[in-house]
Nucleic acid binder design. Sequence first.
RNA 1: GGGUCGGUGCCCGAGUGGUUAAUGGGGGCGGACUGUAAAUCCGCUGGCUCUGCCUACGUUGGUUCAAAUCCAACCCGGCCCA
Length: 411
Amino acid sequence: MTLPGWLERGLADLFPHAADQRNQSLSARLAAAQQADRPLRVKLGIDPTANSIHLGHTILYRKLRAFQDAGHTAVVIIGDFTARIGDPTGKSATRPRLDPREVEENARTYLEQLGPILDFATPGRLEIQRNSTWLAKLDLGQVIRLLGTATVGQMLAKEDFANRYGQGTPIALHEFLYPLLQGYDSVMVRADVELGGTDQKFNVAMGRDLQRCFGQPPQFGLLMPILTGADGVQKMSKSLGNTIGLREDPLTTYSKLEKVADAVVDDYVTLLTDLDPAALPRDPRQRQKAMALEVTASLHGREAAQQAQAAAAALVLTPRSSSTSAAQVPEIRLASIWDWSTPIPAYQLLHGVFKTRAGVTSASEARRRIQGGGLRLDGEKITDPKAAFARETLEGKVLQLGKKTFCRLVA
RNA sequence: GGGUCGGUGCCCGAGUGGUUAAUGGGGGCGGACUGUAAAUCCGCUGGCUCUGCCUACGUUGGUUCAAAUCCAACCCGGCCCA
C-alpha cells in the first residue's frame, strides 16, 4: 500500500513505518477511516511562547491543511498550559516561564496568522483545543502515573537533555514533564496522527507510549523537515534572526526569499509550495526568483507577489526615484516619527523609520549604520549622520537601508 | 546540608587595583566584489540631546584617590560527598 502524494510530499519521517510489520501502516488506517467514513484526527500542537509565525512553521500547517483538504480533522492544540513549562527541545537552557496573559495574547495572534493557511470554514475540519482544559485538572496521583510511564534513562537519552547534562548546564525536573504532558494531549484528543518537526520525534513517540498505556491505538508520527533559514545553514529560528515572518510585507518577504542560499532553494519549493521542482528554471538565479515568487504568492496572493517582484527588480537595478516611484514599498508617515518644528538629523530619521523592522534599535546604531555607508535616500548615499533634512525634502522619497530594506516616506 | 570551582558584552571566552566600554574568536550588520548568492577583502557590533555625558563585568554593601579585579553577605549554577 502506498501513501497519497499530498501526504508524502516533503516527509522527513513517518513512524511506525509500514516496514515495521507488526503495527498496521498509516495507509491501512487511512483506508479503514475511509471505509468507516470517519475522518482521521490529526494533531498539531502550537507552542504559544512566541507571538509570530515564520515560514518554517508553515510547513506543518500546510501539511495539516492537506489533511483537511483530504477530509480529515485538524486538531490544533494550543499549549497554553505546557507553555508554562516551555518545550526543552533544542534548548540549551531552562526557559523562563510565561505569564498566562502573554500566552493568551500569543495564541490569539497565532491563530490570526493561520487564517490564510488552514481551512477554518468547512465544518468538521478544524478543532481548536487548549491543553489547560485537561492539564490544569490533573491531580498529583495522575501526575505520578504519567511520570511512571517513562524512565530517567529515556529522558537522558534525548539529545537535548543529554547535551545539557553532559555540558553541566542545569535541567530542572519539571522539564521532564513536558514530553509527558504533550503525549497526554494525544491521549485526550485521541489523535490518529501527530504532526511535528523532526526535532519533535521524542515527544511524538511519547504520545504513542501514553496512548498505549491508556488503552488507545497509538498515533502515527509524521515529521517534517526543519526549514533552513536564509543563510542555508542553520534552522530558521527567531533567536537566530534568519526568519521570514508571515506578517512581513510582500516586498520584504520576496526580497528575503530571493536571496536564500542556492542549496536550500529546492527544499523551499518542496516544503512551501505545490510546484514540481523539476519544472523550475535551471539557472540558479531564475530558480530562486521563481521560488520566491511562488512562496510570496502563497502568503500574500499572486498579485501582491508579482508587484513585489517587479518592485524588487526596480529598486535594486536602478535605485533612482524615477523607477522607485512606481514600485510598491512599505510606507511610513513622516508625522509619526518627528515633530518637524526643526529639520531631522539623518540618524534620527533612520532610527525613527526602521526601528521596528530592521533592528535599528538605538540612535547610536543608526549613526553606525550611516557611517558604515548603509543608508540611501532615493539612491543617494548619505554618509553624515547629522545631515539635516526638512520635511518637504523627504516627502515621497524612498529610504533604503542596506540592500534589502526599503521604506517610502509619505506625508 | 558539607566540600570545591565558577557567574564578564548576542554567544564563547581573556582580563585579578589605575589610558578598561573592557584582548580574541563566533555570530550579526554594513561596504567593495557578485547572481540581491557563495567565497574573499574592509569596517561596525552598550546608551544618549555625542568633540561631551551616562550606564555596564550575578546582587547588595564595604575598603580605596581609583575595583570587573580586594573584602563581606546574599542569589544562581557545575562537580564530589551526604
